[in-house]
């Protein structure tokens, strides 16, 4: 059942290309806007790069989440999921996982290129990718709660940002912190472990919150 829903979601995202191309393009453009606006030297650029890349990834992930439950809500598929004799939390997890496999992974894959553009040392690119790999999945899980809560509200765009951005803070701190440490030639494994811990926390708790939020939204 999990695999069936997962596959269906992948197929749907694949056919709605704008859903993952737009956040990815947004990510690349926002990151490249900062150097243009700040006109920093190579040293300053290296200092601010982790923060820029991470904040942009966070916003791109938020942007992509709005569509997560929207179309299922509008065409009634969400109702049918609720009525299945199958835990709604697992349905939610399958949807988020499929969504992340497309949007989160594409951000991860694009990030080294942006890291080089922002003068990050090549050693820290690995940490950048790893931190985004762990971090964006947590962001997707946490953000899905907000998406599920606001799906019934027609225009949830800004509200979801207000609800979810504060919850993104820990992931941002450890994610950008890891890249920052490694850019200074220090060991970042401590921060990465924290990201992994946050991911496990989100993975175990978020599906239940998502299920409860979907039920409330459908009422």
């Amino acid at each position: 059942m999990f695999a069936t829903i997962f596959k269906r979601e992948l197929m749907l995202v694949y056919r709605r290309r704008s859903e993952w191309v737009h956040p990815l393009a947004f990510f690349v453009i926002v990151v490249s806007l900062f150097p243009l606006g700040l006109t920093p030297g190579p040293q300053t650029l290296k200092l601010i790069a982790p923060g820029i890349i991470w904040v942009s990834a966070l916003l791109a992930s938020l942007l992509s989440l709005e569509h997560l439950f929207r179309s299922d809500y509008e065409d009634g598929a969400l109702e049918q999921f609720v009525l299945l004799p199958y835990p709604l939390a697992a349905v939610g997890l399958a949807k988020v996982l499929a969504h992340w496999c497309v949007t989160g992974l594409s951000l991860c894959i694009a990030s080294p290129m942006l890291g080089i553009a922002l003068n990050l040392p090549s050693d820290s690119l690995k940490v950048l990718m790893l931190s985004l790999l762990l971090g964006t999945f947590s962001l997707s899980l946490i953000g899905a709660i907000g998406a599920a809560l606001t799906v019934g509200l027609g225009r949830g765009g800004v509200l979801i940002a207000l609800l979810i951005l504060p919850l993104y803070v820990p992931v941002l701190i450890f994610g950008a912190g890891a890249v920052d440490l490694s850019a200074h030639g220090l060991d970042a494994s401590g921060q990465l472990y924290f990201l992994a811990a946050l991911l496990i926390l989100a993975l175990t708790l978020a599906p239940f919150a998502i299920a409860a939020a979907i039920k409330v939204s459908l009422e």
Binding site: R8, R15, D75, G76, Y86
Partner: peptide
């Protein structure tokens, strides 16, 4: 029980048969 509401629960991006095949699998 089975419920069919106002909305039909079909995904516009999938063909009719793909939709039904998905439903038959989850059901």
């Amino acid at each position: 029980s089975a419920y069919i509401g106002h909305q039909d629960g079909l995904k516009s991006e999938l063909s009719t048969l793909e939709n039904l095949r998905f439903h038959s699998r989850v059901l």
